[in-house]
C-alpha cells in the first residue's frame, strides 16, 4: 500500500474526518425499511451515529410512528409536492439530505427502483455503492459489504473508501426489531431542493401475478424452454401434485419472453432466490444465471435430454431423457410410492 492511500485510510478511520452524523434508511416498502432499521441500529451503535428514516411524497404521515417504533431516531418527511416518485427527483432529495445532515451510511431497499436510485445518488455524491448487499459490517474502522458477483460464482468483499457508504439491501436479509411502542423519536417535515427533468410517467400497470410464493416453498418443480408449449406445463403441475406441498417455478424465458407463467415464478439471478428442500428442474439448461437463484436448495433433481447440459453438474440426481417421456413415468412412479 502506498503512503498516500495509507494516510487516506487512517484519515477515513478517524471519525471526525467524516463529519457523519447519521445512518439514512429509505425504502418505499415499509417492511423492508423496518428490516433495514434493525441493521442500521446495530451499525449506528458502532458508528456512534443516529438513525434517520426518510419518507418521500405526500400522504405518508401515519407511517412515521411505525418507523420510530422499529428503530428510527428521527423521521424526515420530504418531497410532499412530488406525486411521481421518479429516480431523478428522489435522488436529488436524498443527496440534499445526505449533505445537509451529514450521512455516513445510506441504506436503500434493493427493489429495482431502489437500485437505480442508489446508483444515481452515489454518482451525484461521488461515492461508492454496493448493490444487493448480503452482509454489512464494520472491519478495522471501515464499512464493508459482501455481495454476489460473477452471476453467482463468487462473493465480493467490498470495503468503502468513500463516505457516505451507499448500499442497497434486499428483502429478508435482516429480521426487523420487535415493535417498541414506548420508543420516542423526532419527526420533521423538511422541504429539500430537487431539479426538473424531461422525463415523465405516462402509465402504470400492475404486474400480473399468480400468487406463487417460491421463496417460502418447500418443494419446487420448475420448467424451462425444454417445454414446447404452454399447455404442456400441466405435466409439471401433475408432477408437483404427486410430490405434494409444491410450488411451480420457471426459468427467465418462460416468464419474461414467453409469459407462460407470471414473473412470481421466475427463479435466478434476476428473479427469485429460493431454497426449498427439493428442487426439480425440467427442461432447464442450468446456465449460471438460473443456478444463482436455486443453488441453496436442499436436493436438486434435473431432467434434460442433453447429457451435457450444465444442470447435471449442479444436480444430486438426474435423468437424461425426453421430459415428455420421463415426466408421465415419474408421476406414476411417485404416486406408486406414496
Amino acid at each position: 500500500m502506498t503512503n498516500r492511500s495509507l494516510s487516506l485510510l487512517t484519515a477515513y478511520q478517524r471519525k471526525d474526518y467524516w463529519g457523519d452524523k447519521m445512518v439514512v434508511v429509505y425504502s418505499e416498502n415499509q417492511k423492508l425499511a423496518c428490516e433495514m432499521l434493525s441493521k442500521a441500529r446495530e451499525l449506528s451503535a458502532e458508528l456512534n451515529e443516529k438513525v434517520t428514516a426518510v419518507l418521500i411524497g405526500n400522504g405518508k404521515d401515519q407511517l412515521s410512528s411505525e418507523l420510530i417504533i422499529h428503530g428510527a431516531d428521527k423521521v424526515v418527511m420530504t418531497g410532499a409536492s412530488l406525486s411521481d416518485l421518479k429516480a431523478e427527483e428522489v435522488s436529488d432529495l436524498l443527496c440534499a439530505l445526505a449533505k445537509e445532515e451529514g450521512a455516513g451510511l445510506m441504506m436503500i431497499g434493493s427493489s429495482k427502483d431502489g437500485k437505480e436510485l442508489a446508483a444515481r445518488v452515489s454518482s451525484k455524491l461521488g461515492v461508492g455503492c454496493s448493490t444487493d448487499s448480503k452482509k454489512l459490517y464494520m472491519r478495522d474502522g471501515s464499512i464493508c459489504s459482501e455481495r454476489v458477483v460473477f452471476s453467482g460464482n463468487g462473493v465480493a468483499v467490498e470495503r468503502f473508501t468513500s463516505r457516505p457508504a451507499v448500499v442497497t439491501v434486499p428483502p429478508k436479509a435482516y429480521d426487523p426489531l420487535p415493535a417498541d411502542v414506548g420508543r420516542q423519536g423526532e419527526t420533521v417535515r423538511k422541504e429539500l431542493p430537487y431539479g426538473t427533468y424531461g422525463s415523465r410517467t405516462v402509465k402504470v400497470d400492475p404486474m400480473l401475478s399468480e400468487g406463487a410464493n417460491v421463496e417460502d416453498a418447500e418443494k419446487i418443480v420448475s420448467c424451462g424452454r425444454g417445454f414446447k408449449n404452454s399447455a404442456d406445463i400441466k405435466l409439471i403441475e401433475e408432477l408437483a401434485g404427486a410430490l405434494k406441498g409444491y410450488t411451480l417455478g420457471c426459468s427467465r424465458p418462460i416468464a419474461a419472453d414467453l409469459k407462460w407463467l407470471s414473473e412470481d415464478h421466475w427463479i435466478g439471478l434476476s428473479g427469485h432466490k429460493v431454497k426449498p428442500k427439493l428442487y426439480v428442474a425440467c427442461g432447464i439448461s442450468g446456465q449460471v444465471q438460473h443456478v444463482a437463484g436455486m443453488r441453496d436448495s436442499g436436493l436438486i433433481v434435473a431432467i434434460n435430454k442433453d447429457a451435457n447440459a450444465p444442470i447435471f453438474k449442479v444436480a444430486d440426481y438426474g435423468i437424461v431423457g425426453d421430459l415428455y417421456q420421463v415426466l408421465p413415468k415419474l408421476i406414476n412412479a411417485i404416486k406408486a410410492r406414496t
Partner: peptide
Amino acid sequence: KPGIETIDIKGVAMSRKNIVFK
C-alpha cells in the same frame, strides 16, 4: 479514486451427488 475496494472474492462452494441415470 475509487469509492470502493474489492478486498476479497470468496468462493461459493456447492457439493452435489451428481448421480445421473441415463
